[in-house]
């Protein structure tokens, strides 16, 4: 554990609390992509298969269960409690390509050609692009509630903070996991445009609006 990893995980936790807070206070999931949320459920379920056989480190296990539980809970809220506020028509990014592409990448790049290793690699590639339906929805609506942008920022910052963590571990422990690092860099690049608008507008107190 180092400061970058810890801050990354805290940022990930914060993103989920911000999302739940947004849904609860506005009583609406408008502007939130159901498709991205569903992809995160798939990411956590395939990443954390090792919950079935351990080893169960307390910190990791609590976090894994929380990520699975909260993402399923968000899907439930969107599907039932706040269904009418869901932007069904606009939230239509073709996730089949993201899932298919990630699966191909997992078949090509994995630590061993076994079910759990292919699923683990799949989860990393899928996570790297899982935000795309959300960013696509943002693009189509052209603007977003400030709290929604805070959610997306915290979620993006989490993986961005893992990059210095990997550099630190590479230097200090001599270990590096290329699949995780490469997918993590792709993930952070996917957020680049969003980060730019977030820093130049939202942080300055302006509304998140994309140029027409």
């Amino acid at each position: 554990m180092n400061i970058f990893r810890l801050l990354g995980d805290l940022s990930h936790l914060a993103s989920i609390f911000i999302l739940l807070h947004k849904i609860r206070t506005t009583k609406s999931c408008a502007g939130i992509s159901f498709r991205s949320q569903a992809l995160y459920v798939l990411v956590y379920l395939t990443r954390y298969l090792d919950l079935l056989w351990g080893p169960w480190l307390l910190y990791n296990t609590v976090m894994k269960l929380f990520f699975i539980g909260s993402s399923v809970y968000v899907l439930y809220l969107m599907k039932f409690d706040y269904k009418p506020s869901h932007d069904m028509g606009l939230d239509n990014f073709k996730v089949e390509y993201l899932i298919g592409g990630s699966f191909v990448m997992a078949l090509l790049f994995n630590l061993a050609f076994t079910f759990d290793e292919v699923m683990w690699s799949f989860s990393l590639w899928l996570e790297s692009v899982a935000i795309l339906p959300q960013l696509f929805l943002l693009q189509r609506t052209g603007e977003a509630e400030t709290i929604t942008t805070h959610y997306i920022f915290a979620l993006g910052a989490y993986r961005a903070l893992y990059i210095p963590n990997w550099l630190y571990r590479w230097v200090m422990e001599g270990r590096v996991e290329f699949i995780a690092v490469f997918a993590g860099i792709i993930q952070t690049i996917v957020y680049a445009d969003f980060f730019y608008v977030y820093f130049t507008k939202v942080i300055q107190g302006q509304k998140f609006e994309l140029p027409a």
């Binding site: 990893r5 995980d9 090792d50 976090m63 990520f67 061993a112 893992y162 270990r175 996991e177």
Partner: peptide
Amino acid sequence: RQEATGKDEL
């Protein structure tokens, strides 16, 4: 494989 960096991360 358990010792791979990514395996003890989230």
